[in-house]
Design a protein around this nucleic acid. Structure first.
Length: 879
RNA sequence: GGGCGGAUAGCUCAGUUGGUUAGAGCGUCGGCUUUACACGCCGAAGGUCACAGGUUCGAGGCCUGUUCCGCCUACCA
């Protein structure tokens, strides 16, 4: 066989591009609905086509890629389905801002032309997103790439809408909803973020209509809305306003007569205890108005500019109107008080404008009805939410869920499949475009102008992407999905709705597990934002450190229940790890690049040790991945490859390289090969690149087609672990002593080791290794000459190993004496604690036997250690 | 107002049902051309686990309270 070698440096960029293309050429990521293998499905949360991917997307696709690569290697028929989301408001806004640069707005273009422009934008954005996902190494099945406005998805959306409408779970109703005057559309409650705003609380005087000598004072944060007042409310038991019960008052500035009503919604303690009621512009007032049969005055148009109802204030913005109303009130002496007030104000999630509650006709989903089975599913663990703490939040929201407003006054999205009849007024709702009224057959139909909330189509994603409502092969094989992996910030927006709509539409819940990953923040815990300038571009990181390093970093930081704080130092550390793997592989190939067939020499204890350690790592990594503990998986791999395989195993074999080569011992290659497979889901590129050069490997075209290593009991070797562990401890102890004494590694020293006959026998097998790794000149076993040596008392397991180094080569007597005294002190302290524990009746009476046994052993070894230390102190003092 | 989470080495974080001696990476300090790797090797220093009580033979993990920091949620105008 030809000698395989690796270039001196790992060129991540070149390798990544080449390998990804090779995987595509192999159809390595393509799912087959006819396959007999058990399916495993994840749908990628579709990124918005608003632009480029950010670090949060990088985390999502890294974790999902790890899951699917793991399952694929375990022999599952994996489908990881890619897609993008039209993201109604967000994308429309981006494109509006974009055309603004050309000096036009969407109304200049008209609906049709504008939507064309958005499609252009979508095409570019999607291309960018797809190429970014490829750069991250994502093993997505590109043959199934779906967009939320694709024909097939539209069909699913209409099917769902129609079914819910027929069951009365979707309905149109006049109601007070959240309105964004800048986006000029209705919003769902979730799309409104309440933020604390420093404002003012104004007290305004209202005179009694039949007796101008009497007045009451109301407190409000929105004086401009008094133009829409239809009542003033007081608490029924408020004695202060006894005289105003059943009275009427005049709206200031308008002299309109409105009633004083009594309602126990009013808090007597707040403000003046009198509340102005504006049903057109406050959700609570709207409810109160309904209870008392009050009228509704809508003061604003869709941009929150005052309309004809506002009289002289018509044409003013909310803000201007407030100023003028206040000025006019002050002039008339009706403004009684003005005080600072911190209160919460709803802001549009997308554009941050202050939302305006507004009464209008909108479409709603009866979410409470759909929520019932969705709550039960989580209660009885049909759906598992990880981390579990989120279940509480889920229940809290789902149990108090309100009607979901799904109509949006936008142009970009799924047009609502409802046709209004111009003749009889009937609503025709149908999956196919309606050409005639289903009631009177009139053709004077007009389709609803509004589009659906983006999350309505997202809610169908786990099955709309698989061809539903058609019974396609994909749908039959890959639905339900397995895992929904996403950020907790869209638990309500998306996850909850998928659960509700999935069950309702297909009869099955869309997945069995929800894994919610943490938020990515910068290294100071700040949310990344463009305005703060702390945004980390994943592609920049890929460019400088490589995709493997970024992936491994994200995986190693994805801990349950804590944010991911991403720092450059951390990424660099894992880039170094990639390099370490590369160099270790170079070393192995340099020496074993021509071996022809597997021949692991299991008579060699060092080999048995490394197999056993690798085996333990397999167990840990598999267990971690099954539990979505990405951190643990990354950590176990890092520890094994660097701290065990490189730091010890490769150093061990250097001492007898030639004889190993002569004996054709291929353990080093075999262990490397398995470690690469184990690492592959986390670091697909470097592992594939090295694996391709290995002289011994499975006959597959790609490492991703190989089996995933799993725990093999026959490779577990406790004895080898114990004996090599002792060897490592001895080498460590000698090295440590050399380090303390500031000895150059070039200086060799004499060492004598004394211990039980069995231990001496075991250690003597490794004589050459100790000599080499601890740099000893002469290495003797057995007791030494009292008084002349520095003595190390090494507590290992249940015995103490005594290591002696002739004093002349190390530190001076005084320093050594101090060290021994210090060590005696700390050992004595620990021994005292152990003795106290063992003599306490509570401990020996109640602690489990293995804990007591452990304490006894510890006490014994401490006593031995103390003995060695005391002896060496005596030796020192008598010398 | 309600809920959830966090506080462990200089920094960023692990620590699975309470069990002997609390770990890692980075940073710091000292040494090093050592059969791949200075993006490296060897060694060292550094922690009364936020605070105060409690439960327990035993607490970084459990309970109560306090302080600080996040996030979610809510109709006191």
């Amino acid at each position: 066989m030809e000698q395989q070698t690796l270039s001196q440096h790992f060129n991540a960029k070149e390798v990544e591009g080449r390998l990804y293309q090779a995987w595509l050429d192999l159809d390595a990521f393509k799912a087959d609905p006819e396959s007999r293998k058990p399916p495993y499905t994840i749908v990628l949360p579709p990124p918005n086509v608003t632009g480029v991917l950010h670090i949060g997307h990088a985390l999502t696709c890294t974790l999902e890629d790890i899951l699917v690569r793991h399952k694929r290697m375990q022999g599952r028929n994996v489908l990881w389905l890619p897609g993008t989301d039209h993201a109604g408001i967000a994308t429309q806004m981006v494109v509006e801002r974009h055309i603004q640069k050309e000096g036009i707005n969407r109304h200049d273009l008209g609906r049709e032309k504008f939507v064309e422009r958005v499609w252009q934008w979508k095409a570019e954005s999607q291309t960018t997103i797809v190429s970014q996902l490829k750069l991250m190494g994502c093993s997505l099945d590109w043959s199934r790439l779906t967009f939320t406005l694709d024909e097939s998805v539209s069909l699913a959306v209409r099917e769902c809408f129609t079914r819910l409408y027929r069951e009365g779970l979707i309905y149109r109703e006049q109601a007070i909803i959240q309105w964004c005057p800048r986006c000029r559309t209705a919003l769902s409650d979730l799309e409104v973020k309440s933020k604390a705003v420093k404002g003012k609380l104004w007290s305004i005087r209202y005179f009694r209509s039949d007796d101008p000598s009497q007045s009451l004072v109301v407190a409000t944060t929105r004086p401009e809305t008094l133009l829409g007042d239809t009542a003033v409310a007081i608490h029924p038991s408020d004695e202060r306003y006894q005289a105003f019960r059943n009275a009427s008052v005049l709206v200031p500035l308008q002299d309109r007569v409105i009633p004083v009503i009594q309602d126990d919604y009013v808090e007597m303690e707040f403000g003046t205890g009198a509340l102005k009621i504006t049903p057109g512009h406050d959700p609570n007032d709207y409810l109160i108005g309904k209870r008392h049969g009050l009228g509704v005055i809508s003061l604003f148009d869709d941009r929150a500019v005052l309309n004809e109802k506002a009289g002289v204030y018509q044409g003013l913005s909310r803000e201007k109107a407030r100023e003028k109303v206040l000025a006019d009130l002050a002039e008339k002496g009706l403004l009684v008080k003005e005080e600072e007030n911190l209160h919460n104000v709803g802001h549009c999630d997308r554009c941050n404008a202050i939302v305006e509650p507004r009464v209008s006709a909108q479409w709603f989903v009866n979410a409470a009805e759909l929520a019932k089975p969705a709550i039960e599913a989580v209660e009885n663990k049909e759906i598992k939410i990880i981390p579990e703490e989120w279940e509480k939040t889920y229940f809290e929201w789902m149990r108090n869920i309100r009607p979901w407003c799904i109509s949006r006054q936008l142009w970009w999205g799924h047009r609502i499949p409802v046709w209004y009849c111009g003749d009889c007024g009937h609503h025709t709702v149908s999956v196919a475009d309606a050409s005639a009224c289903e009631k009177c057959q009139s053709t004077a139909l007009k389709q609803e102008e509004d589009v659906l909330d983006t999350w309505f189509s997202s809610g169908l994603w786990p099955f709309s992407t698989l061809g539903w409502p058609k019974e396609t092969a994909d749908f039959k094989t890959f639905y339900p999905n397995d895992v929904m992996e996403t950020g907790f910030d869209i638990l309500f927006f998306w996850v909850a709705r998928m659960i509700m709509l999935g069950k309702k539409m297909t009869g099955k819940f869309p997945f069995h597990t929800v894994y919610l990953h943490p938020m990515v923040r910068d290294e100071y815990g700040q949310k990344m934002s463009k305005t703060k300038g702390n945004v980390k571009d994943p592609l920049e990181i890929v460019e400088t450190c490589g995709a493997d390093a970024l992936r491994f970093t994200l995986a190693s930081m994805a801990v349950h229940g804590r944010d991911v704080l991403l720092s450059d130092a951390r990424i660099e550390g894992y880039r170094n790890f990639v390099t370490k793997i590369w160099n270790a592989s170079r070393f192995v190939l340099m020496h074993f690049g021509t071996v022809t067939q597997e021949n692991a020499d299991m008579s060699n204890e060092i080999n048995r040790w490394v197999w056993s350690r690798l085996n333990e790592t397999k167990r840990e990594v598999n267990a971690a991945l099954e539990q979505y503990r990405f951190f643990d998986a990354a950590n176990a791999l890092y520890r094994f490859v660097w701290s065990e395989y490189c730091d010890w195993y490769l150093e061990f074999i250097k001492s007898d390289l030639e004889s190993r080569k002569a004996a054709n011992d291929t353990t080093a290659v075999q262990v490397l090969e398995e470690a690469l497979r184990l690492l592959h889901p986390l670091m697909p590129f470097v592992t594939e690149e090295v694996w391709q050069r290995l002289p011994i490997r499975q006959a597959k075209a790609s490492i991703s087609a190989c089996d995933y290593p799993s725990f093999a009991p026959e490779h577990h070797d406790a004895k080898a672990e114990e004996r090599v562990g002792r060897l490592i401890a001895v080498v460590d102890a000698i090295r440590s002593k050399r380090g303390e004494s500031g000895l150059s590694p070039a200086v060799e020293i004499d060492v004598r080791i004394h211990a039980s006959p069995e231990t001496l026998q075991a250690l003597s097998v490794f004589e050459g290794l100790i000599q080499k790794l601890a740099k000893t000149k002469t290495l003797l076993f057995g007791s030494g000459t009292p008084g002349k040596d520095v003595v190390i008392a090494l507590a290992f397991g249940v015995e103490t190993i005594e290591i002696r180094i002739p004093r002349g080569q190390l530190v001076d007597q005084e320093t050594d004496r101090k060290r021994i005294l210090k060590e005696i002190e700390s050992t004595q302290a620990e021994l005292d604690r152990a003795v106290a524990r063992l003599t306490s009746p509570g401990f020996v009476g109640k602690a489990p036997p293995e804990v007591i046994e452990g304490a006894k052993n510890r006490k014994e070894v401490l006593e031995k250690k103390l003995g060695v230390l005391r002896m060496s102190l005596k030796e020192l003092e008598s010398a």
